[in-house]
């Protein structure tokens, strides 16, 4: 056990010659909903992938619950990637079986219930599902676990505003309250209300790490407004408006 759920020190990651993270120091405690905010290419996805062990840091250290990334940390991390990872021959229930086998904190019944409430038929073949439906299945897989750390990479990009509300509500009503949720997004106004803390990433560095209440109190403006101010110089690239 550690005081901080996530701890990074001097984290540096480059793809070839192109740096994606340039010295990130970060500590996030348990039971928080944290926004990882930044324009595209600022290193959000890189940081999340490092935390779930899909890539390795070039230099620096990172720990989840005080442990280096490995089977132990993976057992308590629930990761929503920015892409589909299914083998097409499977059905949603096959994936639920798989998750039940590997993750002790996966609740099968809850997953089925969530499918029902999201209008997904769990016995349908994934191949036959629309993109939106597949995304819902992926969301169910992630939120039906009572994980210690949820890593959600752009969960609301590329969907319409109604679906956005719906996804955020699903996250809010299903996450494990002792757990921490890290949401990466560039659509800040949509997630601002659900966040405890905001982390601003710019060109691979942390510009600001502060509670949302403090930002509003000190700056007298929303996180979204502050974000727009800080990143004004950069052209924003929207994801699927």
């Amino acid at each position: 056990m550690s005081d901080y759920l996530i701890q990074c020190r001097g984290l540096y990651k480059s793809y070839g010659l192109r740096p994606a993270l340039r010295g990130v120091d970060l500590a996030v405690g348990p039971g928080r909903i944290v926004g990882l905010l930044g324009p595209n290419g600022s290193g959000k996805t890189t940081l999340i992938k490092l935390l779930c062990g899909l890539i390795q840091p070039t230099t620096g250290t990172l720990a989840v619950d005080g442990s280096a990334i490995g089977p132990y940390t993976k057992s308590m991390v629930s990761y929503l990637p920015d892409r589909m990872y299914f083998a097409s021959w499977m059905k949603a229930v096959d994936l639920f079986d798989l998750f039940r086998d590997f993750y002790a904190d996966f609740e099968y019944e809850k997953a089925i219930d969530m499918c029902r409430s999201l209008g997904v038929e769990p016995r349908d073949r994934l191949k036959a599902m629309s993109k939106g439906t597949k995304e819902k299945v992926q969301l169910v897989l992630v939120m039906a676990r009572s994980a210690r750390l949820y890593l959600l990479d752009e969960p609301i990009a590329g969907v319409d505003p109604a679906a956005r509300d719906f996804i955020l509500r699903t996250i809010l009503t299903n996450y494990n309250e002792e757990g921490t949720v890290l949401i990466s997004t560039h659509l800040i106004s949509d997630v601002e209300k659900v966040l405890d803390e905001a982390i601003f990433l710019k060109e691979g560095k942390i510009m600001l790490h502060e509670t949302v209440d403090n930002i509003r109190e000190k700056e007298g403006k929303s996180v979204d407004a502050l974000f727009r101010e800080i990143f004004r110089a950069e052209p924003m690239e929207g994801g699927g408006f």
Partner: peptide, 17 residues
């Protein structure tokens, strides 16, 4: 708390506060 938070679409910690 959780229900209120979901209804308002806010973080449960914020609603708790």
């Amino acid at each position: 708390v959780r229900e209120l938070a979901a209804e308002a679409g806010v973080n449960p910690n914020t609603m708790q506060r």
